[in-house]
Structures are given as C-alpha cells and as structure tokens.
C-alpha cells in the first residue's frame, strides 16, 4: 500500500512539473516537438540529402545549387567570391546568410572567399543570388575583381 502511495506521489511530481510554468512550455516546445518530428519521420523517412537540407537550411541549399552549377559549367579550380551578407540584408532586404568559406567547403568541397578575405585575389567566380536563384559570373581579370570589390565596398561582410 505504501509503495502505491509513493508511486502516486512520484507520478504526481512528474505530472505537476510538466503541467505548469516554465517546464511545461519547454516540454511542449522541445522534447514533445522533437517527438512529433520523430513520429513524422517514422511515417515518411527522409533521405540523407533531405535531412541535411532540413538541418542546415537555406545556406546549405544555396551551396548545393552553387555546387551543381559548378559541375554543370565544368569549372576548373573555382574560387567563389560571395556577396556580403550585409548587402542582402541592407540593400536587397532579404533574410539571407551565405555560409562562411570554411562551412561552404564542408558542405560542397569547393573553395570560396569573402570580400574582405586576405586571399580575395584568388577569386575567379562571383556568386550572385537573386530571388533564390544562383548566378555565377566569371572574373577574368584583376581589374574586374577590383571593380567588384569597389562596388560592394560599403557593405561589410558579416556572419
């Protein structure tokens, strides 16, 4: 009988903890939400590529588009130059963050630089993103690169 009483007490403790206040919100927002994710995945398992897309979001999707474009265009030793994220935010007013070069390499195995990178001179392709579409422009000369850098000079590259 006393075991039953203690069991009722311990069950009540757990239920009370989850029924009120901060822990309730947390439980609904996190573990239960993840559990629902799990149930969805059991019904409709995603491929590894889909899981990565869900996990890493827009920067990953855009990076893969760049990789596909590089493959389709048969680019040799491309070093991509990304427009500054502050340009997307402040000029185009879009919520877009291109990954930093290290993470872009992790996603795609391709090299990239930012406008303020010490190795920006190595850039030979400019990546332009408009309305979710990726456009790659060949940078043929140092002069052309300088013009691009001057064009984006007022936008500080940020994470």
């Amino acid at each position: 009988m006393k075991r039953l009483l203690l069991t009722i007490i311990s069950t009540s403790m757990v239920l009370l903890l989850l029924a009120f206040g901060h822990y309730r919100e947390w439980f609904l927002d996190k573990p239960l939400y993840y559990w629902n994710d799990f149930c969805k995945e059991v019904r409709h398992p995603a491929s590894l590529g889909e899981v990565r897309r869900i996990r890493y979001g827009t920067p990953y999707i855009l990076s893969m588009k760049i990789q596909e474009a590089a493959k389709a265009g048969q680019l040799h030793d491309p070093v991509f130059l990304f427009e500054p994220n502050s340009f997307y935010h402040d000029s185009l007013h879009v919520d877009l963050n291109m990954p930093e070069p290290a993470i872009f390499y992790y996603y795609t195995g391709l090299k990239a630089v930012w406008m303020n990178s010490p190795t920006v001179q190595k850039a030979n392709y400019l990546v332009v993103i408009r309305k979710g579409e990726v456009k790659i422009e060949h940078i043929r000369t140092t002069l052309q690169l300088q013009e691009i850098l001057t064009h984006y000079r007022s936008f500080t590259p940020i994470l």
């Binding site: 930093e100 070069p101 290290a102 992790y106 190795t119 994470l159």
Partner: peptide
C-alpha cells in the same frame, strides 16, 4: 580544410 580561407 586548412587550405581554405579560415579568416572568419
């Protein structure tokens, strides 16, 4: 990985 621009 160490040949990539790691300035950020």
């Amino acid at each position: 990985f160490f040949t990539v621009d790691l300035s950020t």
